[in-house]
Design a protein around this nucleic acid. Structure first.
Length: 602
DNA sequence: CCCCCCCC
């Protein structure tokens, strides 16, 4: 017969039926066949790529996700359709009421193999092995299915206190639904002890970032826990940690890539672990400098780049505290062809002394909107000069070979009109409120967020012939056979059409007219204005079909309300500075987070 | 339970 490794019979059914108390399941290292794998498009913002993998045990198949630290196995072409592999470590999460296998470690046995058997789909199962409820649809009166309840992997056991064996869980599997766990994690980024004093009281705190090969999580100790743990937790060392509280992380303040954070309590157990070879040292989640435009102001991110320029040391006076603070600006560039300014503060600014265009990795840098986009160091940010990581070596090679002579695009002018305020669900105003609040009625424009549905599009004039020069976009006039741009003082054989759309939008409270430019039209119609004009010239009926297809679509908007005088009439116009298609996943997640974070829901 | 992180 065949020399192929045996697939672990029945494992798909078993994972699918697993109830939370099933301890034995996670001791298995099943051998499966990978039927297919596919990159999942990110739902929003610059996140790491994720891969979906269909695994089969020969009888049934099951959908799974690769944990991001396993992405390399796809990206380095180590697996193929039909690959037979052993899942060395996994967990099972409940996602939207369905069980989802998460592959944390995978060993390839045979890369190329024929499909084994005729595996069949399994009936989706819910939290307790019961058939899953119907998919969640967002709306005011939906049922409350838990967003994600994790069933963690037992990756290994370790002798805990009192000789009792304690399961070691990957950080990635921690969640508020999980109570008895131990993690084995390296401490990084240990802060100084800080004190605070406000209306709610006063106290002291310090925090650390904990990481293992599955991910990282921020942990904070307050008051008595500070006395207990500050000296015992040392930067760079590895500990077994248990009995800390898992809370939802407030994204606004978090620079680590985790939905949750830990609070150390006096009862939290911390034990140094000397067998630490399997625990990584620093984890980055780099984004390209070009992608900064998609990252919200005030969020944090990891960036790696070459220092193109260094400013002299200077200083600023803080408006809040009147303190004089030293600062230094670095200009960093990467292969995306963009540059961005990074501000160092205080001692770090004074002591910076690198001359030869080093590669620097920044972790937890704060995103600002000065000149489009800017970066700045915070107390929780870290800087790593010429780190010994593949990304750094690649950048070094690129810069020395080509990058040094390249021109770089700054973020100035690349941000959407309206100052780049980002969409924030917590700030949504209803349209009636926008009107009665008289937004934009005074001397300066007002930005606001709205969620509204397109009711009508003024279809007779949705675009204009524009100058094709990058960054110009001014209207051009036909002069005989060519099109002339006054601003560029140039003529072109044909124009580039750009959208200028007026649309009536509604929400539950009322309606308004919004004006959108080119990016808005492209999002709404799903094609360029050139393409749509071509359709209109060729087939008016099809053009109407395209326009009508946008009616009834709902979007999240960021708008700019501004007074405008035209033909002696003064009125407020609402310009769309940002349009985002609704992501049901994001909307539902926002509502679920509200439930978890609001006091009245406890 | 902090959450300030600066200026132009």
């Amino acid at each position: 017969m065949s020399d192929l490794p045996q697939l672990t019979a029945g494992i798909c059914t078993r994972i699918n039926d697993n109830v939370r108390e099933d301890d034995q399941l996670f001791n298995i290292q099943p051998t499966v066949q990978l039927l297919s794998f596919k990159k999942i498009p990110p739902t929003s913002g610059p996140t790491q790529d994720r891969y979906r993998v269909i695994v089969s045990d020969g009888e049934h198949f099951l959908q799974s996700m690769l944990a991001t630290q396993m992405n390399y196995i796809v990206e380095e072409d180590q697996i193929a359709k039909g690959t037979i592999a052993t899942i060395e470590k996994f967990s099972v999460n409940l996602v939207q009421g369905k069980r989802l296998l998460i592959i944390l470690a995978l060993k390839v046995l045979v890369k190329h193999a024929e499909k084994i058997g005729s595996p069949k789909a399994l009936q989706p199962r819910g939290e307790d092995g019961a058939p899953a409820s119907a998919p969640v649809t967002p709306g005011p009166s939906t049922s409350t299915t838990p967003a994600a309840a994790a069933v963690p992997a037992r990756q290994q056991t370790q002798a805990g206190r009192g000789g009792r064996a304690a399961a070691v869980y990957p950080i990635e599997s921690l969640s508020p639904y999980q109570t008895h766990w131990t993690i084995k994690a390296r401490v990084t980024n240990k802060s100084d002890i800080r004190t605070w004093s406000n209306q709610r009281g006063e106290g002291k705190l310090f925090s650390v970032t904990l990481m293992d090969e599955s991910g990282e999580i921020r942990a904070t100790a307050f008051n008595a826990a500070v006395d207990e743990l500050y000296d015992r937790l040392q930067d760079g060392k590895v500990y077994l940690i248990s009995k800390a509280k898992v809370n939802l992380a407030k994204k606004k303040f978090s620079n680590v890539n985790n939905e949750y954070e830990l609070t150390f309590e006096r009862s939290t157990e911390v034990e140094e672990c000397h067998d630490a070879t399997d625990v990584p040292t620093v984890k980055f989640n780099f984004i390209n400098i070009s992608s900064l435009q998609d990252v919200a102001k005030d969020s944090t991110c990891d960036v790696i780049g070459v220092v193109k320029d260094v400013s002299e040391l200077s200083s600023i006076t803080s408006k809040a505290t009147s303190k004089v603070i030293p600062k230094r600006e670095l200009t960093i560039v990467d292969r995306s062809g963009y540059s961005v300014r990074m501000t160092l503060w205080g001692k770090q600014a004074e002591q910076y002394d690198e001359n030869d265009h080093p590669v620097i990795a920044f972790k937890g840098a704060k995103v600002g909107d000065f000149q489009g986009r800017s970066l700045s160091m915070m107390s929780s940010s870290t800087m790593h000069v010429n780190p010994d990581i593949p990304e750094a070596h690649a950048l070094r090679g690129w810069y020395d070979a080509a990058g040094a002579d390249q021109q770089f695009q700054s973020h100035t002018g690349t941000m959407v009109s309206g100052g780049g305020i980002t969409f924030d669900r917590a700030e949504i105003r209803n349209l009636n409120d926008v009107k009665v609040s008289e937004l934009g009625m005074f001397d300066k424009p007002d930005n606001f967020c709205a969620r509204a549905t397109i009711m009508h599009i003024k279809s007779d004039n949705i675009s204009y012939p524009a100058c094709p020069t990058t960054g110009c976009g001014k209207k051009v006039l036909q002069m005989g056979e060519s099109w002339r741009c006054e601003k560029c003082d140039k003529s072109f054989p044909k124009p580039e059409h750009r959208y200028m759309v007026a649309m009536a939008v509604s929400d539950y409270s009322g309606q308004a007219w919004f004006q959108g430019f080119n990016d808005v039209g492209q999002t709404v119609f799903g094609m360029t204005a050139d393409e749509l004009v071509e359709i209109k010239d060729r087939e008016e009926l099809q053009y109407n079909t395209v326009i009508n297809a946008s009616i009834g679509k709902t979007f999240n908007f960021t708008c700019r309300a501004k007074q405008d005088t035209y033909n002696d009439q003064t009125r407020v116009r609402y310009g769309i500075s940002r349009i985002l298609p609704l992501s049901y996943r994001e909307e539902a997640k926002y509502l679920a987070d509200l439930l978890l974070t609001s006091d009245w829901a406890r």
